[in-house]
Design a protein around this nucleic acid. Sequence first.
DNA 1: ATAAATGTTAAGAA
DNA 2: CTTCTTAACATTTA
Length: 251
Amino acid sequence: MPEGPSIVILREEAAHLTGMRIADVSGNTRLDKARLKGQTMVALRSWGKHFLIEFRSFSLRVHFLLFGSYRIDERRADAVPRLSLGGARGELNLYACSLRFIEEPLDTVYDWRTDVMSDHWSPARARKKLIERPQLLACDALLDQDVFAGVGNIIKNEVLFRIRVHPLSTLGALPTAQRNALVREARKYAFEFLAWKKAYVLKKHWLVHTRRICPRCDVPLHKGKLGRTRRRSFYCTQCQVLYADNDTAVR
DNA sequence: ATAAATGTTAAGAA
DNA sequence: CTTCTTAACATTTA
């Protein structure tokens, strides 16, 4: 559920609730639910993996982490919502998610240029951030939400394979063309992810994520928990080049 | 059935 | 004061 494109789908699916005044609130969240009653959903927005419900004087931030889910205009029979917001236009049910109020205007809290799904996405800004951190590993860079908000582990693996860069490459050792390709492909793949997910054909388009054989080399893929975050990396040591300065650990 | 997974955060350790 | 490690959270699928 969680990567950026999935949140865009949620935003689109819930669009008809925009402008709705909340009549019914329930759920097992520890948040002050009473505050939401009577509020009008002014806008439904998103930033990376954050789903944002904007009210007149504050907002609600929804993060689905690894296991969260939602139902729109229906309710799961087998689970109590973390939060349910109902009104004349329908009902939004959120499960197993992290909720937080945001008091400041969203435009002062979020830099929309960082969101790979946003119309305001700025590749130039991302490129600049990458140049500023030469020691950062390619696999960690893609997961850094301050650089690529919305990119998750699937997108990470697919992007690195597409641009033929080994996940343990350091940014400083990457040729400029590859560094730029990293930024370009993150955005491009995120939108392909979106289209495939909408068509329910996302998984079959995965080239390396959860795969065992390199589709280019026909050689076994490597699998390892790499980088700062120790997230799964699937990669081919034959066609993904390791760019490293000197003594960077290899595997 | 046990583990692992599209993720983040807080707390404690180094 | 960082920076790193670990645990916690919670659900579905292999």
